[in-house]
């Protein structure tokens, strides 16, 4: 030992085995049940969209970082999450070129342009979807019924309610036998993955609890006032992309607040905006916009919502 140099650095000398790729791959693992459900309902359409989105995400991250002469993080799992999450929010019969374009937008303009992972303000996958909604509104709102992929264009349950005042049964919503985007169909599949992430403490329970709790409270209040006109809280919980958004997108570490109190505020804000859109907006669904809008408020929340200091109150903001 004496012939060898000893390493000298400041304490602490030990570290958690957890690192960024481990967190990202855990999220990917948690999404496996959703992927299986989407393939079950939409077979080859789902496979094609998911594969194209993931591959495009990894390659666009790699190429952008190479162009900027930076070390590549394309395989740390975060780009794959963006690709997969975006795929799961798309209508099953969206042309593959449109999906790929959305992914490139998400990775390059949603994430890398800010400096890469950790610096982005918005959830990249949702930003990609917002771009597609703006660019190709018709393609993005033509839906397919599960198992019947060729002909039928079925309106989503939320659109049916909004524009035709008809309710899809709760059970169909829970299991996923409804028309909708790839990943928002089966609440059951999403919950399996969510439990895994909660147990591994990768997502904070406060965000889905605050988000969905607000939705239940608000929709419940309106339902009690007028059950003829408004759907019940459970229906609102299960319909659309709420569960996927609450567990997998609002919980994105980079674009959500760092303090526990801040997370509550963020989550409740998401719920309020979502219900405003679902009740009075021009669109049937608003999970995407509710999260994106609250993403924009995160720097503000982080600036003013501070943890309680040990031994005294903090007077300054960040």
């Amino acid at each position: 030992m004496s012939e060898k140099y000893l390493l000298v650095s400041a304490a602490p000398h030990i570290r958690t085995p957890e690192d960024i790729p481990k967190i990202m791959y855990a999220v990917l693992i948690a999404l496996i049940p959703v992927v299986i459900a989407s393939v079950y309902f939409f077979s080859l359409l789902a496979v094609k969209l998911i594969v194209v989105c993931i591959i495009t995400a990894v390659f666009s991250e790699y190429i952008f970082q190479k162009l900027r002469k930076k070390n590549t993080t394309a395989l740390d799992g975060s780009a794959m999450i963006t690709g997969l999450l975006l795929a799961l929010t798309l209508p099953p019969n969206l042309p593959l070129w449109a999906a790929a374009l959305g992914v490139v937008f998400a990775i390059v303009l949603g994430k890398q342009i800010f400096g890469g992972l950790g610096y982005n303000i918005f959830n990249p996958a949702l930003l990609g979807r917002a771009f597609l909604m703006a660019a190709f509104p018709a393609l993005m709102t033509s839906w397919t019924l599960p198992f019947n992929l060729d002909a039928v264009t079925g309106a989503t349950p939320l659109a049916q309610m909004k524009f035709a005042q008809s309710l899809v049964a709760h059970q169909a919503l829970f299991l996923g036998n409804i028309s909708g985007s790839l990943g928002e169909t089966s609440a059951l599949a999403i919950l399996i993955g969510a439990v895994f992430l909660l147990l591994k403490k990768i997502i904070d329970w406060r965000i889905p609890a605050g988000f969905m709790g607000t939705v239940v409270l608000l929709s419940g209040a309106f339902w009690l006032i007028n059950p003829e006109k408004f759907a019940d809280p459970l229906w609102h919980l299960l319909a659309g992309g709420l569960i996927l958004g609450a567990f997998f997108m609002a919980t994105d570490m980079v674009s959500s607040p760092v303090t526990r109190k801040g997370k509550w505020i963020f989550a409740v804000g998401c719920g309020v905006i979502l219900m405003l859109i679902r009740f009075w907006g021009g669109l049937p669904e608003g999970v995407m916009y509710s999260i994106l809008l609250m993403n924009a408020l995160v720097p503000l929340i982080d600036r003013f919502v501070l943890p309680v200091r040990f031994g005294g109150k903090r007077k300054n903001s960040v």
Binding site: I20, L117, G118, Y119, M253, V254, V258
Partner: peptide, 8 residues
């Protein structure tokens, strides 16, 4: 060291 991902 990598950039902070704000995990909190």
């Amino acid at each position: 060291a990598n950039p902070c991902i704000k995990c909190g």
